[in-house]
Amino acid sequence: MSKPVIATTSLAGCFGCHMSLLDIDERILELIELVEFNKSPINDIKKLTKPIDIGIIEGGCCNSENVEVLRYFRENCKTLISFGECAIMGGLPALRNGIPVEECIKEAYLDGPTVQLNKDKVLPNDPELPIILDRVYPCHEVVKIDYYLPGCAPRADFIWEAVVALVTNNEMAVPYEVFKFD
């Protein structure tokens, strides 16, 4: 039987969750025995090349590209996991929620401390750029999410328990000390 395929991505996140994934240390050797990695920042594979069993999403959706990537994952992953506080509740980027987008953009490009570098008062509007959303959305407000792994970042032991439980089709143990929101 072929190994389950995992893909991961980071949307509006800081890659801290991915760092935490690496914190499983030597167990990563066990992990690659259990699963096959497809697209992920860890191996730098850029595109999904086959149907995915488990998609792991770090970060919420703050721009149009985040939404597209998330939908792309949803379409191609059997199971989708929101990974970390940003994916689950918007996290740090969501501190802007409730503040009008106009105010945010102007603060960043016109009124902020580095404003003097933008002498021509250009606002980023190149068609190449992803478009900022009206607010930051938790992933499950955009597509259906199957599982959630909270934490900022989720503890490595917690991730380990979850992934192993999922690929071995067992119930997940949630040790109290590793289930944290911060």
Partner: peptide, 8 residues
Amino acid sequence: FCPSCEKS
């Protein structure tokens, strides 16, 4: 937002 809260 627990990660940034003093009481966390």
